[in-house]
């Protein structure tokens, strides 16, 4: 898509949704509703990919994705490419709401969100887990394209499990001077929330150096058992490749349940 086309397009409001139901003991994708620029493609029995059919999000865009994973079903969501957030008329936003029923499993693993210079973006996740729901949720943010410092972004993550707060985090990017307490000089920040416990890591004897019974830490990555049922892997890095490597290292410390 040409820059002229980007500039020509107007701010959009979109709300896409995916829902599963349990049908004869198997997962059925019963709702798959695209809403440009959020276009959804089913790529496997329980897998859906986001395909961008327009540039952006652009300033002014308000995008929502709604995921409902019925009890006992499985859903995997990915994206074909990174999301490039561009400036435009006012702030843009992307809100993902997900409800995962008892015994259900959701894997949300989109490619990184790249904040282009001048953007003003808000990313929000509202995730609610019932009973023994399982989740694997990745979020990666890259400050700027090559050679750019990047725009502004506030990310907000709210997860509850069984009605109790599990993880609440807000991170401001590009809004103030960098601090050696917050991001240091890192250009990329990412995390994976998983409901897998990490306290079995050492008992299994299958973990790398740096791991201890209650989490693990290495250069730019930390594996933290939450107070509630789950583990957060959090990483900082100079670029998106290093960020993914660090998150993968962290995840290797958390054995599959």
């Amino acid at each position: 898509m040409s820059l002229a086309a980007v500039a020509a397009r107007r701010a959009m409001r979109a709300r896409a949704e995916i829902a599963t139901t349990l049908s004869a003991g198997r997962t059925a994708l019963t709702v798959l509703r695209s809403s440009p620029p959020l276009t959804l493609r089913q790529t496997g029995p329980v897998t859906v990919h986001l395909v961008s059919t327009a540039a952006g999000p652009l300033g002014g865009d308000e995008l929502e994705l709604d995921l409902r994973v019925a009890p006992g079903t499985t859903l995997e969501v990915g994206s074909i490419a990174s999301t490039l957030v561009l400036p435009g008329e006012g702030p843009s936003s992307m809100t993902v709401t997900a409800h995962v029923g008892a015994g259900a499993s959701l894997r949300f693993a989109p490619e990184p969100t790249v904040l282009a210079d001048g953007c003003d973006h808000r990313m929000a996740v509202r995730l609610s887990l019932d009973g023994d729901a399982r989740v694997w949720w990745r979020e990666e943010v890259v400050m700027g394209r090559y050679g750019e410092a990047g725009g502004r972004c506030v990310t907000r993550f709210d997860a509850t499990a069984g009605g109790r707060p599990l993880l609440r985090q807000e991170l401001e990017l590009g809004t103030g001077p960098c601090s050696p307490a917050v991001l240091g000089g890192a250009r990329c920040v990412g995390s994976v929330l998983t409901t897998r416990p990490c306290d079995t890591a050492v008992a299994d004897g299958a973990v790398a150096d740096g791991a201890v019974a209650d989490g693990a830490v290495a250069d730019g990555v930390v594996v933290m058992p939450l107070a509630g049922p789950g583990t957060l892997v959090q990483a900082l890095a100079a670029d998106a490749v290093e960020l993914r490597e660090r998150l993968d290292w962290g995840l290797a410390q958390v054995p599959p349940s």
């Binding site: 991170l171 917050v182 930390v222 959090q234």
Partner: peptide, 16 residues
């Protein structure tokens, strides 16, 4: 809910 990824890293490294 303002988070600070480096404080988390520092705290976990310090503990070890």
């Amino acid at each position: 809910a303002a988070s600070a990824p480096l404080l988390d890293l520092l705290a976990e490294r310090h503990r070890r």
